Amino acid sequence: MAKGFEIKFDKGWEKAIQNAAAGAVQDEIRRTQATLDRIFNQYNGQPVSTIKPVLLREWRRGGGTMSDGEATDWAELISSGQRIVLKQG
């Protein structure tokens, strides 16, 4: 039977790991916001049926997933001229 093991970090390493993770989240938010802004600028005011497939395609391209309901909700916002703003939190 394999023995378990435990990894412990001192407080300095723990803080460094948390900071790196927070930085990665902020980077992803910036990339995603840029994508949303590009879609908004190009498609705001257009029909949901035009915007929704664009959102789904962009999310897949970025390696993410978006439900059909989320895509519909976000497409409705963009169609009505509302910019989506992401916040960490």
Rank of each mutant, 00 (worst) to 15 (best):
F5N: 04
W74D: 11
Q33N: 06
K8D: 03
L86Y: 05
G23R: 13
I39H: 11
I78M: 04
G64V: 02
A34D: 14
I51D: 01
G4N: 03
Q82D: 06
F40G: 10
E6C: 05
I84S: 06
G63M: 09
I29P: 02
S79R: 12
Q42Y: 04
V85D: 05
G45M: 08
G23C: 08
T65P: 00
I29K: 10
D73K: 15
G45K: 06
R31Y: 06
R57T: 13
D27N: 12
Q42N: 12
A24P: 00
D27E: 13
K8C: 03
V85R: 14
A16D: 04
S80G: 14
E6N: 08
R30S: 13
A75V: 08
K87L: 10
E76C: 10
D10L: 01
A34G: 14
Q33I: 13
E6T: 15
G4E: 07
M66R: 05
A75D: 05
F40E: 08
T50H: 05
E14M: 09
K52L: 10
K87T: 14
K8F: 07
A71V: 12
N44F: 15
S49E: 15
I17G: 02
G4A: 07
G23E: 14
L77G: 06
W13P: 00
A22F: 05
Y43Q: 12
Q33H: 09
K11S: 12
F40A: 09
K52W: 00
F9Q: 03
V48T: 12
I7K: 07
G4R: 11
G45F: 08
P53F: 06
I84Y: 04
G62P: 03
Q88N: 12
I84T: 03
V85G: 00
G45S: 08
T65W: 02
Q42G: 04
G63R: 06
S79W: 09
Q18D: 14
K15M: 08
N44E: 07
A16I: 09
A20Q: 11
L86R: 09
A22W: 00
A71L: 10
L55N: 03
S79K: 13
E70F: 06
T32K: 13
A75T: 00
W13Q: 06
Q46D: 05
L55A: 07
I17H: 03
E70R: 13
T72V: 09
G45A: 08
I29H: 02
A75G: 04
K52H: 01
I29E: 03
E76V: 09
L77D: 14
Q46G: 07
L56M: 14
A16M: 10
P47R: 12
L86M: 12
R57A: 15
L36K: 06
Y43D: 01
G45C: 06
K3S: 13
G62C: 04
G12M: 01
S49L: 07
L77F: 12
V25E: 14
I51F: 01
I84L: 15
R60H: 11
L56D: 05
Q18K: 15
V25K: 15
Q46E: 09
F9S: 01
S49M: 04
G81T: 06
T65S: 10
L56V: 11
K87W: 03
G63L: 11
Q88I: 13
K11H: 04
T35F: 01
